[in-house]
């Protein structure tokens, strides 16, 4: 049995003029103990999807089960066994760290001591501040506390909605390290993120855009299905280089990527022609390398298809 099974799940929302499909016939399976990433920009439908799976929203179509319980019929069962960390910091700012944790434990009919082993690794980091009000914690600390509160009842499935948005690179890295350790505790984790580079840290990912899933699979399998000859290009003047690449017939696509530009060549072109073309445009210090695509390359290609 899958930990999470989603079948053609759809959510509409109504604006004054039209009906927008926030989530459109989304299907995927998450195995037990998996760290599953939903990768997509704002407006992809990640939050609506998570809210449906945590019984906060009713779907307009399709079905889904979480740990075998139906998200529409078995609301009570699901509410007992999932942990949920919403996108915004959602703890009581005027309660201390300790009070928040105790409160959430009681609400979930458990105690901090009972499941202390599960949160111990994370909790020791915030323990020095346990009498401090949650609102006075730093961003990274808040996040750790929120994770503790979401874990306190030992959920079977943990939903983390954009836990790393607006958090700096150091805290992001720490957070992912914590998730890795949680995986060893056999908790199934679904995490959503707009950061493409975080995909590589998941067991499997679903790439999402405007309510639809573009692709599902392990990061490696998604990358290997990327059938294009991708090159990185660099020159003295990067912006004119990009303009020239965009104007060239040989490039199926070209875009900036870190310190290089990425160029995907059309089938009948090769790297020699690329070099000749760039020389003809009088670029200096041209560097061209072949490279492995990453999730972001794949996402962009999938978006444009």
């Amino acid at each position: 049995m899958s930990a999470v099974s989603v079948n053609k799940l759809t959510k509409l929302y109504h604006t004054k003029k039209e009906r927008v499909k926030a989530v459109e016939e989304v299907s995927f399976e998450v195995s037990k103990g998996e760290l599953f990433g939903i990768i997509g920009p704002d407006g992809a439908g990640k939050t609506s999807l998570f809210r449906m799976l945590t019984t906060l929203l009713l779907p307009d179509g399709g079905s889904a089960t979480v740990d075998g319980s139906d998200i529409v019929k078995d609301v009570k069962a699901i509410r007992k066994k999932v942990g949920y960390m919403p996108g915004r910091f959602s703890l009581y700012q005027d309660l201390t760290v300790q009070e928040n944790l105790d409160f959430f434990a009681t609400i979930f009919n458990t105690t901090v001591i009972e499941n202390y082993d599960l949160i111990k690794d994370i909790y020791v980091q915030i323990e020095p501040f346990k009498t401090r009000r949650a609102g006075k914690l730093s961003g990274g600390m808040k996040q750790k506390l929120a994770l503790c509160c979401a874990l306190i009842h030992r959920p079977v499935v943990l939903f983390l909605d954009e836990p790393t948005t607006g958090v700096d690179a150091v805290s992001r890295k720490e957070f992912w390290d914590m998730l890795k350790r949680l995986k060893d505790q056999a908790i199934t984790i679904l995490v959503s993120t707009p950061y493409m580079d975080e995909a590589a840290l998941c067991d499997r990912v679903a790439l999402m855009q405007t309510g639809r899933i573009l692709s599902t699979g392990t990061p490696t399998s998604i990358i290997s299905s990327f059938a294009s000859n991708l090159f990185t290009v660099k020159a003295e003047k990067m912006y004119p280089l990009l303009c020239d690449l965009e104007a060239w017939d040989g490039a199926r696509d070209s875009y900036s990527f870190g310190e290089f530009h990425h160029v995907i060549l059309n089938a009948q072109y090769d790297v020699g022609q690329l070099r000749t073309y760039l020389d003809s445009k009088a670029h200096s210090n041209v560097e061209i390398h072949t490279t492995q695509p990453n999730i972001e390359d794949c996402f962009m290609q999938l978006m444009q298809n």
Binding site: G40, P41, A44, T165, P194, Y239, Y255, F299, M303
Partner: peptide, 21 residues
Amino acid sequence: TGGVDPVTRREFWNLIYQASE
């Protein structure tokens, strides 16, 4: 550029380049 898709993010940066030019 927080939260936008990778394609839009690049379009945004192209605007930045143009402004810089």
